[in-house]
């Protein structure tokens, strides 16, 4: 009984179905564990957490320079910026917008730097539903390859004050 001290000889190896279940469960745990290094080596979607310390203001300056050098248009008052294929791209999160609108090419790989000017934010790329954390002081580098085209939405999914749900941006892939 679970409410009383057990019998003196309680220390016993498991028997029968219980023993088999423990074995199966352990094997399943190993399978799940091994899936992660496997995907890391052979899968295409990984979060490696590559990041560099950066002062928010310094990051903002780099973003401004990037926009100036690569702007190709405007959308809803935001600059549309096309980074060189295979090059560096920047995305700045701040209360409560994403800056600028990036224009990428399908199949090209970019090093996308994401950081925040103020609070923590969450970069959620829709409708793929890909999500990454954005922190002030950290230049989070995503080596990303768009595999589909269209106009995508970026919403913030980390609470960042009352305007949080308004923090919606766009991203274009051609």
């Amino acid at each position: 009984m679970s409410l009383e001290p057990p019998k003196k000889d309680w220390f016993q190896a498991p028997k029968g179905a219980e023993r088999v279940w423990i074995g199966i469960a352990l094997a399943w745990c190993f399978v799940m564990f091994l899936m992660m290094p496997y995907w890391h080596l052979f899968g295409k979607q990984n979060s490696t957490g590559e990041a560099y310390k950066v002062e928010p203001r310094a990051f903002q300056e780099r973003v401004e320079a990037f926009v100036e050098a690569n702007q190709v248009g405007e959308l809803d008052g935001q600059p549309v910026v096309e980074p060189p294929p295979g090059g560096e791209a920047y995305l700045l999160a701040r209360m409560w917008s994403w800056y600028p609108v990036l224009k990428l090419r399908q199949g090209e790989t970019y090093r996308l730097h994401v950081s925040s000017l103020d609070l923590q934010h969450g970069m959620s790329l829709l409708p793929m539903n890909m999500n990454f954390q954005v922190l002030p002081g950290y230049d989070h580098v995503l080596t990303i390859t768009p595999t589909s085209t269209g106009t995508f939405t970026i919403v913030c999914n980390e609470f960042c004050g009352v305007g949080h749900s308004m923090m919606v941006g766009k991203l274009i892939v051609e």
Partner: peptide, 22 residues
């Protein structure tokens, strides 16, 4: 912290599984 900046993949894999899901 699995999609956080600044923590590496090995650390994430080992710790998210609490040492192999025990």
């Amino acid at each position: 912290l699995l999609v956080d900046p600044g923590v590496g993949a090995t650390w994430k894999i080992w710790n998210t599984s609490y040492a192999m899901y025990l």
